[in-house]
């Protein structure tokens, strides 16, 4: 059990990289971008093929990131330049990536076998166990990424991007082409998903065509869990940096919950259903609470 939980933490951190990406599109731009299902798998496939082809595992990760960003760019162009609704643009990219990923791998599953990964290299260099090595590297990467994103969203371009999700009207009036900011957001988001795919591939030592299925739901569930946690902490985690941290922590907790319910005997195939229910409930509650509050405000009138 303890081993399973340790594994869940390390997996959660790696998938947390993807959640950071989903956070950008979903929370900042209010787009539920389905392309991450495809780009996470794309990152994994590209990474697996590159590593088995003899490429350095670090470079392979960079390649996975770039591949994800390029695919995100396709969604961005479909959405921003051709006005295709974001949800459909994401679905189109996701579906086409299924075929593209199969072409990249040539089959539906590529094992890394004895090829080195950044985790095995680090484990060998430090003498840590594979799980510990994964956790440590994952943590370092997550911290660096959170810091980078925090910096980026404080810059002129980053602020324009945040404002785009807030008020497109204003942003255009201030001379920013909102098509460009949306394209950029989708590229960063899917770049992170591709990067996460590469990390997951190297940690599990294989890439699989189905590895990205349900990614968006995991990302959304993790964000929701992170938000609930934020509400429970005294400072309510209002600052931007802490919300990013919450997204990663939320992913870790998602994987912990998953490990626990699997240990308790739940069928692994039911996990997707559970994730969807978590997201659906979390998105419904604020609406129901809002309605209940409105109703509670009503009074009959007449005599007081």
């Amino acid at each position: 059990m303890l081993l399973a939980l340790q594994g869940a933490v390390s997996q959660g951190i790696l998938w947390g990289v993807m959640t950071l990406g989903v956070y950008i599109t979903f929370k900042l731009l209010d787009i539920a971008d389905m392309s991450v299902d495809g780009t996470l798998a794309l990152g994994g496939c590209v990474c697996a093929v590159a590593v088995t082809g003899g490429m350095d595992p670090k470079l392979a990760l960079l390649l996975a990131l770039l591949a994800g960003a390029a695919a995100g760019g396709v969604t961005g162009i479909l959405h921003a330049a051709f006005d295709i609704p974001s949800i459909l643009a994401g679905i189109l990219t996701m579906i086409s990536l299924w075929s593209i990923n199969l072409h990249i791998m040539g089959k539906s599953n590529v094992p890394l076998l004895a090829h080195p990964t950044i985790f095995s290299q680090f484990a060998a260099a430090t003498g840590l166990s594979q799980t510990m090595a994964t956790t440590v590297i994952g943590l370092v990467i997550a911290v660096v990424l959170v810091a980078l994103l925090y910096w980026f969203f404080g810059t002129e371009i980053g602020a324009a991007l945040r404002a785009t999700g807030n008020n497109e009207h204003m942003v255009r009036a201030l001379g920013v082409d909102t098509r460009m900011t949306k394209l950029l957001a989708l590229m960063i988001s899917n770049g992170l998903a591709g990067f996460a795919g590469g990390l997951v591939c190297q940690s599990q030592k294989y890439a699989d065509i189905g590895m990205g299925t349900g990614t968006i739901v995991i990302g959304l569930a993790a964000i929701v869990i992170g938000e609930v946690l934020g509400q429970l902490t005294p400072g309510k985690l209002r600052s931007f940096g802490s919300r990013l941290v919450a997204a990663v922590v939320g992913t870790v907790i998602y994987f912990l919950i998953r490990a626990i319910v699997l240990q308790m005997g739940m069928d692994a195939n039911d996990m997707k259903l559970l994730s969807a229910i978590i997201v659906a409930v979390a998105l419904s509650i604020p609406v129901l609470v809002g309605r209940a509050r409105t109703r509670a405000l009503w009074s009959k009138g007449g005599e007081v």
Binding site: I157, R162, A163, N166, L174
Partner: peptide, 22 residues
């Protein structure tokens, strides 16, 4: 932009029509 600070809004506006960088 409602979710952004007053000074962030002003800073966005102070760069109206300019190239935005990092």
């Amino acid at each position: 932009a409602a979710d952004m600070q007053i000074e962030e809004n002003l800073a966005l506006a102070a760069r109206r029509g300019q190239r935005r960088g990092l």
